[in-house]
Amino acid sequence: MRLWKWVLPGLAAGLAAAWLGYPRLAWVALTQPIRFSHSVHARQDVACTACHANAPGGAFNGFPSIEVCAGCHPDPTGGRSEDEKEADKLVSEYVKKHKDVPWLSMVREPDHVYFPHAPHLSGKPAGCASCHPDMAREDYPELKRNRISGYLSRTMPMARCRACHQSSRAADDCVVCHR
């Protein structure tokens, strides 16, 4: 009986440590090359499509080319705030060198999932935020990748896709999305 006095609390403490420690071990935080705020750009009425134009085939909407960034950020600001320093970093390290920023994707589906943006955007009043997190409200969103699966923390769950297909009476056979 004395053994149980030590085993049960030890087992409970071990399970609690695993429960709390697993997320720290399984997920790695990733950092964007430039600290970028979508909300700052949204408050200036910059539409999502001004920077994220459809890629050929519509499979991934893509990142803006450095020419798009240079359209609004041709010269350093010389400012002292963290945001102004990051804008200056964008100009000095990428715009002036005509080098695209190696952005990390916030929301990217696994390679076996085919997702064309074009049919999903036609006739949808909600726009990007109907599927993606509402980036217009996000300053510096945290990006994490699972060390085991490789999935990103913001990968769209299949159940959400299926629910939308079913409610809109769109085809939901496996081969529609999975290649």
Rank of each mutant, 00 (worst) to 15 (best):
S105D: 11
S167T: 13
H52L: 08
V95H: 04
R145S: 08
F63K: 03
P76G: 00
C177G: 08
F36S: 04
C51V: 08
T77D: 04
I66H: 06
V40R: 12
L20H: 06
P157E: 14
V107M: 11
Y22H: 09
T49E: 13
P56I: 02
D172I: 04
P125D: 12
S39K: 14
V40L: 14
H117R: 08
T31H: 14
H112F: 15
R179V: 11
A16H: 05
E138Y: 02
R147H: 07
W4D: 01
C174L: 15
Q44P: 00
N146D: 15
D172K: 01
R169K: 15
S149D: 01
C72K: 07
A53V: 14
G57V: 11
C72M: 13
V46F: 07
E142G: 12
L143E: 01
D75H: 13
P74G: 05
V68G: 00
S153V: 06
D83I: 06
C131D: 04
R154C: 00
V176S: 10
T77C: 02
F60M: 09
S81L: 09
R160L: 03
Y140V: 10
P74I: 04
D173W: 05
V40S: 05
K99F: 04
L3Y: 09
W19E: 02
C174K: 09
L104V: 14
N61V: 15
W103H: 08
V107E: 10
E84T: 08
G57A: 11
